[in-house]
């Protein structure tokens, strides 16, 4: 542990049930904390409200992408079959009047571009993939993906105070509270190599 810096970067509290985790999030929200998060094996209903989060922005990314798919497909077909090399087939004119035959491809490309936007937009909003995060330095954190529920408070929070924050987390019945330190690996994500989940072994 010699490469650890002095100041902790976050406080990590462990809970056994989703209900306790939800209460802790509410307590932090009501105390005015902003830079905190919960880490759970599955999404918990009501957690967004408990943390005081607004709605996801993802729809604002997907809608323009879907619109682009529809317009792009129309433009492509119109230019290829009606302008660059007009094809008259089945008595259907090489023009806008043949719009019905463009619908299937317009629909498919709308769906395709929207789906790409949904997936990559989600990863982008979440800032993933991410090589390392200091939270993985906690040896207990690995069980977040099994059966434990965690709350983390980051040192960047304006209300951050090691003793007071710790007391608050203990006051909402955390099973275990620990300070997590950054190391040189996690300091600057993606700049240092080695494996993704240091601290697990």
């Amino acid at each position: 542990m010699s490469d650890l810096q002095d100041a902790p970067v976050l406080l990590l509290a462990e809970f056994d049930t989703p209900g306790e985790c939800l209460h802790a999030a509410e307590a932090l929200r009501d105390a005015g904390y902003k830079d905190f998060d919960t880490h759970t094996p599955f999404p918990i209903h009501g957690m967004d409200a408990a943390m005081g989060l607004g709605d996801s922005k993802l729809g604002w990314i997907v809608f323009p992408a879907g619109l682009m798919g529809a317009i792009g497909a129309f433009t492509m077909i119109h230019w290829m079959n009606n302008i660059d090399y007009p094809i008259i087939i089945g008595g259907k004119p090489a023009g806008i009047a043949s719009l019905p035959s463009m619908i299937p491809v317009m629909f498919e490309l709308t769906v395709l571009l929207s789906a790409f936007a949904a997936v990559f937009g989600m990863l982008g909003l979440n800032k993933l993939p991410r090589h390392h995060h200091p939270i993985f330095n906690s040896s207990r954190f690995a069980s977040f993906s099994n059966d434990k529920f965690f709350v983390s408070v980051e040192a960047t929070d304006p209300k951050w105070n090691v003793d007071k924050t710790k007391a608050l987390l203990e006051g909402v019945h955390a099973k275990h509270v620990e300070l997590v330190y950054d190391d040189e690996e996690g300091g600057d994500e993606l700049e240092h190599s080695s494996h993704a989940s240091k601290g697990h072994a």
Partner: peptide, 17 residues
């Protein structure tokens, strides 16, 4: 796993996606 850490801020966008 792309660095997934079960964060609720991530789950929110994930569930929307």
């Amino acid at each position: 796993a792309v660095g997934w850490r079960g964060s609720n801020r991530h789950w929110q966008n994930y569930e929307r996606a």
